[in-house]
Nucleic acid binder design. Structure first.
Lengths: 348, 348
DNA sequence: CTGAAAGCGCTAACAT
DNA sequence: ATGTTAGCGCTTTCAG
């Protein structure tokens, strides 16, 4: 095993092959304008040496790095990992590598990651910002010389295009569905109320409830099983117990569902439940949970497409200097009727 | 907005600051051996110019790239995304970036990805090989000059260390649990029988069943809901219907559970079910599903730790030239008793 | 069709 | 404490 030395270089290949470096360079870049004889010979030497061009040296020459950065809260979150997978597929089609970094929804980690990716000279960035309004992040991004696309959450007050789900309309649709079923005391449950998406969903819920002129309450303190149980118990024992629960995010839906199950409350008989965001086993639990489904893969795909589009036509950075004049692509959500809202029994 | 030009370089900073390049280099590398005055000044210029060192140039100088590559089948698979998250945490602690690439369990994609990562001069690789025996992959990896760690699946016949779950013991434990409950006709269901992990689990199941001197059958054709339904129906209508089902992977567990639910078969009354690999809602569905849980995060963490260990002490590549003499870390699985095997009713 | 040579941005001797 | 300088491995004019 003599192979474990360092990496062979292009000039080593050239020397061994008895040709100039230019020729080798041409060979590894497609082999055009090279005599078939030489081509074959050089290729053989490359193979034999196990030569791999050093990406760093190429990058240094100033070209594209064929690398894009993806900044998401967590890679273990099904929503974002699905987005990431979709974005990766587009990147691969564009012959690019994706570097995924996770931010834990922490703006300072986010900024650190943007810096790392900038040092690596990523050609562009796709980011799901923890805080749509972070001044630090916005100014950092503004100074960047590469295109950026916001995913799932916009970057307000910037010219950065965003690919979003229509959280407002989705939540309104969900709430209205519950209202159409006849529920009048719809409790809205969630956690992480600082996130853009959650705020939009709350807005949608409020709008629907207001239009129907019914009472409402929102509780944004659900973080885990315990807080879900406590909150639900409190409301259920209150003077105006809910007849339905609208949960604004995946984990909350699950916590609430389990709490209801634990308390032995009939769903949807005593209390109905409808969740924002679909998840794998929503159709498998009993009762199956009705949800608002987001076009997750499409979001990742569209964001990546948008980025590569900008990479293609440089300078065409749609510069609407007006605040929030940036392009916003809002994708539609869909109501998936299952059993937890009463559909299989009443409406069908 | 004059900022959107190219990236400012170190020598530009030096010129603007009226100092030499060495000084700037020292500043961006910690600022030791630099006069506090100059330090502050240079820092100001850097800030003002929005200067970011070009990683490529540093790499070119030959040092570590502080980048490791992770090759997994899919980023959307909860098992691997959890591993990835854990590995990332370790990488961050070692001040390194992780580049995650997905292989779709396709050896040729895998090889392409190894090449990409080699061109990027990743300091090391963590790989969950699609095929533990792929000759092409093994020779490619053998020529590499960087440390490699196998994750979840070993690379047989190499000196590459592997971090695995004890699939054999886990499956045996699961099967034995079913046997202890009194089940005697335990059907083993799975898909992807070519994977190392699945083969090991089948081995574990066979061993348990053989020791108990009972009949058994394994069906490895479950790919989706439909095939699960067909297979289960076929066995159920057969002359020797199973009284329990042991599923060897997550998706199979879910497909089988849903099929049973759809057919209206009482679980565990008529047929018990036990799954290999835990999943988020296994405790939420009714009945809650008993599973063999793998130490997922630990696997990702240990694999990354092992890699950085090798990175620390170069050359110490535990070179047991004997075939399969490589270090193998086998982590224990755990039986999580829930209801689908009859535990809450019989054993508790 | 092929080669020589000039950098790309940075680091690390070696001076001063 | 700080500047000068020589490459790192590659691409790319510009000449043969």
């Amino acid at each position: 095993m003599t192979k474990s030395a360092k990496h062979p270089t292009l000039s080593e290949v050239a020397r061994r092959a008895g040709v100039g470096t230019t020729t080798v360079s041409r060979v590894i870049n497609g082999g055009r304008r090279v005599d078939p004889q030489t081509l074959a010979h050089v290729r053989r030497v490359i193979e034999q040496l196990g030569y791999m061009p050093n990406q760093a040296a190429r990058i240094l020459k100033g070209g594209r790095t064929r690398t894009i950065g993806l900044l998401i809260p967590s890679i273990a979150d099904p929503f974002f990992s699905a987005c990431a997978e979709a974005a990766q597929a587009i990147a691969r089609a564009n012959d690019s590598l994706v570097i995924v970094t996770t931010t834990q929804n922490d703006t300072s980690v986010e900024i650190a990651n943007v810096n790392v990716l900038t040092r690596h000279r990523a050609d562009g960035l796709i980011i799901a910002p923890a805080d749509s309004k972070s001044q630090a992040l916005r100014t950092l991004l503004a100074r960047l010389s590469v295109p950026v696309v916001a995913l799932d959450r916009p970057l307000s007050g910037t010219s950065i295009p965003a690919v979003l789900a229509d959280n407002f309309a989705g939540a309104r649709t969900g709430t209205n569905h519950l209202i159409e079923h006849g529920y009048r005391r719809i409790l809205c449950l969630t956690g992480e109320p600082t996130l853009y998406t959650i705020r939009e969903r709350i807005r949608g819920y409020r709008e629907a409830v207001k239009s129907a002129r019914i009472e409402y309450s929102v509780d944004t303190s659900v973080k885990d099983h315990r807080s879900a149980e406590e909150t639900i118990e409190r409301f259920l024992c209150g003077s105006y117990p809910p007849d339905a629960i609208f949960t604004l995010k995946n984990s909350t839906t699950i916590y609430a569902f389990e709490a209801l199950q634990k308390f032995g409350i009939e769903v949807p008989g005593s209390v109905a439940i409808l969740g924002y965001d679909d998840f794998e086993l929503a159709a498998t639990v009993r009762p199956a949970i009705t949800v608002i489904r987001q076009p997750i893969e499409e979001m990742g795909r569209v964001a990546a497409e948008l980025l590569f589009e900008q990479l293609q036509e440089p300078g065409k950075t749609a510069w609407n200097s007006s605040v929030d004049g940036a392009k916003k692509i809002r994708l539609d959500t869909r109501l998936i009727r299952r059993e937890s809202c009463g559909c299989s029994e009443t409406i069908s």
